[in-house]
Design a binder for these strands. Structure first.
Lengths: 340, 340
DNA sequence: GGCAACTAGGCGAACGTTCGCTTAACCCTC
DNA sequence: GAGGGTTAAGCGAACGTTCGCCTAGTTGCC
């Protein structure tokens, strides 16, 4: 049984006292700076390890004026794509010796309300934004432009903040082109939340592909699925009832595509024979849906890593010119579009 | 266009200088301590807000000897269940004004190697462990027992660390009982990694249910699916080929259950008529698989919140008696077991 | 009108670092 | 043997806070 409080932390002064030198000399040794004789250096190092010395980064960052920590503001960690992004970002940060402080914000919440001030208080060296709410948060945008380097997954009002993401228009384009090349002429689409930029970009890609093929755009073929399985399922039912001649559906993400598959199944439609389905994102479940889902691979992991890399570069260089990173996407053909 | 570096942070001294008082008095006002006249209090607050003063938590924690930050060590954020857990934990931490620093560790990595020292350097007040590797990491366990309050999702060697989790044996029991009550007699199971405790607990529940019903346990009916869709799919094929009389499969998580569904589909077996399927975890996709998946609901979100609550209580009270939190689970019957 | 009690605010120290400057001792060199 | 250069180590200050103690000035009371 343990009794009492965890052991007190040992400081550089404790190490110094035990080795009979000043604490500044100890600091020099521990940082490999200044000139210290081999004998005392060895002695100090031994004592430090004996005592279990662990440097206090709080104190260090106070004098260094840099915490080597970045903040990550996310809307919802349990979103699968977002968590891939976070994994990529965290790993890159770790590789470069940065800590990551996370704060999630509620779906309706603004980042300026809690998350941003909380991170500023902790004096993070930079901020990675992965919350779509920022697209409408002018107050937060103003703060971000002035105070700390930031990279966002979504466009920040004013455009003064760097962004990183994949080519969403290309995503819509590739998906729709694929369906057209398979001979489909009546292609419906289920979109994410309409007010989001991703949605608009992917929709633009969809329309461009139709145009290329000389097919008309029909607003009745586009339903709002709000990024949710259930909503997409309902949207699919509405779509098919309204327009039975539909032979293909492009869902703006794989989650919704799963809802589409589920709806088609319950309507007695065979996939891909009666209706083909293409999703977006390439979640790791995509190869295992029934039937396996054709989708556009979106490099979330790499986006996270690249976004973090950009952020850390900005921090290191002190540069503030906003950049816009755009990562490529590609189609993965599986059975749901008669693909493989 | 922005030019130059982000603005320098304003300190309590800056505020003091502008208000014509000592910085200590400013500190008092900002913290609501000590007695200050209404006039100067108002003046100081105005100046602070004009200058955009943001307290520096680094400096504060240096003197307070507490960072109000906790570390979270996870194996893989993109694991859906884990991210639910993290969301719950983060939200509870935020509610209580704590920051969360995340570090993930690679599948083979030990937490002692990087994650633990990194968090100790940052002087976190406590650590939440969500990495199964800890079950075999004696070195990390030793560090944890001595230095900092911790709560783990997995049992830590030595047992000196509090744990939080759901009742895994009950999980296996409920799932198997359900299948038995539906008339099944040859029930296979697909397990997670064999060396993990969860796997053993769920397996124990499975065996207990069989025993209760007077059914024999047959090792040939238990296949290792390693928590992965693909492996589960392959395992299902092996299982069905070896024992065509199987009429039900209990998968130790929903991911693997999806692999099972996919395998059964490709084998031409109808679910639930030819073979019933039950999963575990109740991921949000479970209602939308084809057919909808019967599963055991595991409260990951609540587990995260409760684990964090326990951790913060331990921190606040200075108590170190290890506790073990066990959250209840329940069955959700859907079509894959002929349920609803 | 003298003394206690309170109020408003100042001051010094501490938390654990890093950094630049100074000092003491030693070794060369002319 | 005096001067200059080098090396090893110490010292003071700073980073931005909080905290306890001290001191003037005001008020209240008998």
């Amino acid at each position: 049984m343990r009794l009492g409080r965890p052991t007190k932390h040992v400081s550089v002064k404790d190490v110094a006292a035990r080795s009979g030198v000043s604490f500044q000399t100890t600091s020099k040794v521990l940082n490999g700076k200044g000139s210290v004789s081999a004998a005392t250096r060895a002695r100090i190092l031994r004592v430090a390890s004996d005592l279990g010395y662990v440097p206090n980064l709080q104190a260090r960052s106070l004098v260094m004026q840099s915490t080597h920590a970045v903040g990550l503001i996310a809307s919802d960690f349990s979103d699968h794509n977002l968590s891939r992004f976070i994994v990529g970002a965290e790993r890159e940060a770790r590789r470069q010796g940065y800590a990551v402080i996370i704060t999630s914000i509620e779906p309706e919440g603004s980042s300026g309300e809690y998350a941003l001030p909380a991170l500023m208080e902790r004096r993070v060296d930079g901020i990675l934004l992965a919350a779509p709410q920022i697209e409408e948060d002018r107050a937060a945008a103003r703060v971000l432009e002035r105070t700390v380097p930031a990279v966002s997954l979504y466009r920040v009002p004013g455009g003064g903040v760097s962004t990183a993401g994949s080519d969403h228009e290309l995503t819509g384009l590739l998906a729709t082109r694929h369906l057209i090349s398979r001979g489909h002429r009546v292609i419906a689409t289920i979109t994410g939340s309409r007010k989001r930029r991703v949605t608009q970009s992917r929709l633009r890609g969809y329309r461009r592909a139709l145009e290329e093929a000389g097919l008309p755009f029909d607003a009745e073929l586009a339903e709002d699925g709000q990024w949710e399985i259930g909503a997409a399922q309902a949207a699919t039912v509405r779509l098919i009832e309204r327009r039975p001649e539909i032979t293909a559906i492009f869902a703006q993400n794989d989650y919704m595509a799963i809802g589409v598959l589920s709806a088609l199944h319950s309507l007695g439609k065979r996939v891909p024979d009666d209706c083909a389905v293409v999703g977006c994102d390439d979640i790791d479940m995509a190869p295992y849906t029934v039937p396996p889902l054709t989708t556009i691979h979106v490099p979330f992991f790499e986006t996270g890593a690249e976004a973090m890399r950009l952020l850390l570069t900005m921090i290191a260089s002190g540069s503030v010119e906003p950049q816009a990173l755009l990562l490529p996407v590609h189609l993965i053909a599986r059975a749901s579009s008669g693909g493989a």
